[in-house]
Nucleic acid binder design. Structure first.
Lengths: 236, 236
DNA sequence: AGAAATTTGTTCGTATGTATC
DNA sequence: AGATACATACGAACAAATTTC
């Protein structure tokens, strides 16, 4: 059997790992500015080019946002959303991916959610209902889309599967974007009669079948809207 | 409404896009060596540091493999596998993700596969059966795992959803790895009585429900094996 | 409005480590 | 062993964008 030769990792790769760790472990929070180049150079003891290569790697992966003359900011704690954003696909494609993943997440959440998970889901749902009560305007479209996404994200977290969570969380921004632009148009209905509550109640009852079924039903409504939307767009 | 200021992209970002395009559009094929730094510098008209930053970005994303003293090689045509590889998770997590996505892919494939898709699936399945007929050894474990993955990849392609395809294709290497190491141990059964054939036949009949059901059934068998495997490992 | 300070962007020169033949 | 080709790393200098005073 032939073994791959061990290759010592380059300095700049090591710097990437160091910076990435700061972000993943939350010492540098999303939105915050990281220390400027001269400071990092001094701390890490590497040349400027070496550091810059590392920063570029994380920038391209979507974890950092580098603004010339201003600074470098943390934008995400994972590479997956950035990678998925580059892979194209329409809103319909995003919906189909959600249709695959969401019911499974709901089922797993019903099996594995602990009390903290359930409390977070309930809180997110409460806020979502609160926002839904307000009249839809362009200003609060982003707020509503965010509130909706937050609920789904908490369900996903409760499934306790890091891979599915990563994938699903990466899909959410793309969906949020489209919902936000569509929300003031046409017949987009923000309220689904108790569909989301049903998911939460099924999780509380540890009824994984019911949780999956409710999630599927909620998605079917959104897909109908997407089909109508696309048909309308074609005739415009 | 406040608009985001337009920010002109840096030279090194433009270089990233140029290099990425060469890879994505297949002019630089996977496995090939890309031109050496001095040549790219001359062609693109940028400084060494600028080019190196771009190469590092693509290296970290998993599309390039840089070997000091040797050259830089193309390793993938997408960033998603590299990103997903960093997000942790166990084999069980990978299986659960597959369980979510695979049936949906089979359903979509039954709705959308064209003649070319079906021919490719049939070919992959034929090869898989051929390899399965050989006795399992450590040497051909990798070959079998690859043949199995190839079948699933062709089904995924036939679903004609770029996002789901990217996600699923990114999961395959992780699964292949574990199957490969487990294949000679314990009671891992490489043959499932006609399970994979059923998927193909359902796709041919355009029966999306049957395709999804067959895919689910196939996965359930693998999941039983994983549970047994984990129980065994715990008692060892 | 303008000047200075801060921060990232880009270039060049040089020396060194590593793989291949 | 030697030669060649290639990537790695450092350092210094100047350019350009942004913020701050």
């Amino acid at each position: 059997m032939s073994l791959d030769p061990i290759r010592q990792s380059s300095l700049s790769d090591q710097v990437v790992e160091r910076l990435r760790t700061e972000i993943v472990e939350g010492r540098w929070r999303v939105g915050e500015r990281i220390p400027p180049e001269p400071e990092l150079i001094a701390d890490l003891g590497v040349a400027r080019g070496t550091l810059r290569e590392a920063i570029r790697a994380l920038q391209y992966s979507g974890m950092l946002d580098v603004r010339r003359g201003d600074g470098t900011f943390v934008t995400a704690r994972s590479e997956v959303p950035g990678a998925l954003a580059r892979s194209g696909g329409s809103i319909g494609d995003v919906l189909e991916a959600r249709a695959a993943i969401e019911p499974q997440l709901a089922r797993l959440a019903a099996e594995r959610a602990d009390d903290d998970d359930i409390a977070r889901i309930a809180e997110a749902l409460e806020y979502r209902s609160f926002v839904t009560a307000e009249p839809p305007t362009r200003e609060n479209a982003a707020v509503w889309a965010q509130a909706d996404a937050a609920f789904h994200e908490e369900v996903a977290r409760a499934a306790h599967n890091p891979i599915l969570f990563e994938i699903y969380a990466a899909l959410l921004p793309r969906l949020r974007e489209s919902v936000e632009s569509a929300i003031t148009r046409d017949g987009f209905s923000r309220e689904d009669p108790r569909g989301h509550e049903e998911v939460l109640e099924a999780i509380r009852r540890r009824d994984s079948e019911a949780a999956g079924a409710s999630a599927s039903a909620n998605l079917a409504a959104t897909e109908r809207w997407d089909h109508a939307e696309r048909a309308g767009a074609a005739s415009r």
